[in-house]
């Protein structure tokens, strides 16, 4: 089943009087339980594409269907809802709230989903245990290492059981060993049946994915499957 279908999407920014064409007609579709890496040099439009996929931004023209519903026609509130319930973001800079301890950071999306306090606490705990931080729940971000912070961020992305995990350079601020651990965590998450979209410019990070989409100058340059996709059968076993 297609979670994401985009057809001939363009995005034009106005910078002063200049028009910048960040995307010049991109089409792709992503299935449930895919593990996709989006690659490209800076200026290739991969960030724009990611914002689009994450419903943070709407295309200038073209069609974007999220689970069969057109995103371009959604109101701000509907977009916020989709981001809240269907998409889990993982950022390069973690973007944890410094004042909040780990468990509160993970709870955050559930607050906006209107989940009552006790259930929120319970789900946040489970998500933290899932990413291996069961013993760090009450630590604030500045008491955690970079890898641990990114794990908190991943727990925050997972806690709402989203349809896709959208990770933007998740290892960009980590040393290669910790980065590798985080990539292994993504692999685990993928193995549990989650759909992951990874944005990176590092070849060796992209190779963790099963499919690599390469962007250049706002076009898809190459879209290749590098590993056989697991079927649902394999996921269960």
């Amino acid at each position: 089943m297609n979670i994401i279908t985009i057809k001939n999407i363009t995005k034009v920014y106005k910078v002063g009087t200049e028009e910048v064409h960040a995307l010049r007609g991109v089409s792709l579709s992503i299935d449930k339980n895919e593990y996709v890496a989006i690659m490209g040099p800076s200026g290739s439009g991969k960030s724009t594409l990611m914002n689009m996929l994450g419903c943070l931004d709407t295309p200038t023209s073209g069609l974007y269907l999220f689970k069969g519903i057109s995103v371009s026609e959604m109101t701000d509130n509907q977009l916020a809802n989709i981001r809240n319930k269907e998409i889990g973001f993982v950022f390069q800079t973690f973007n944890l709230l410094a004042r909040y301890d780990a468990i509160h950071n993970v709870e955050l999306p559930l607050i906006y989903a209107g989940v009552p306090k006790d259930e929120r606490r319970e789900r946040a705990k489970r998500a933290l245990i899932d990413v291996g931080l069961g013993d760090r729940m009450n630590h604030k971000p500045n008491e955690l290492s970079g890898g641990q912070r990114q794990r908190v961020a991943i727990a925050r992305a997972l806690v709402t059981n989203p349809s896709i995990i959208l990770a933007d350079e998740p290892t960009g601020n980590l040393d290669s060993k910790t980065g590798e651990e985080i990539m292994n965590l993504f692999q685990e998450i993928h193995n549990k049946g989650n759909t992951i979209i990874l944005v990176t410019h590092e070849e060796y990070i992209a190779e963790h994915a099963a499919r690599i989409i390469r962007l250049r100058d706002g076009h898809i340059e190459k879209d290749e499957i590098i590993k056989p996709q697991k079927t649902s059968q394999q996921v269960i076993s």
């Binding site: 943070l56 916020a80 809240n84 973007n95 955050l108 925050r156």
Partner: peptide, 13 residues
């Protein structure tokens, strides 16, 4: 940045 994050994870206007 905090506002951006809150919006990204589903906070409405």
């Amino acid at each position: 940045k905090e506002i951006g994050l809150r919006k990204a994870i589903g906070a409405k206007k």
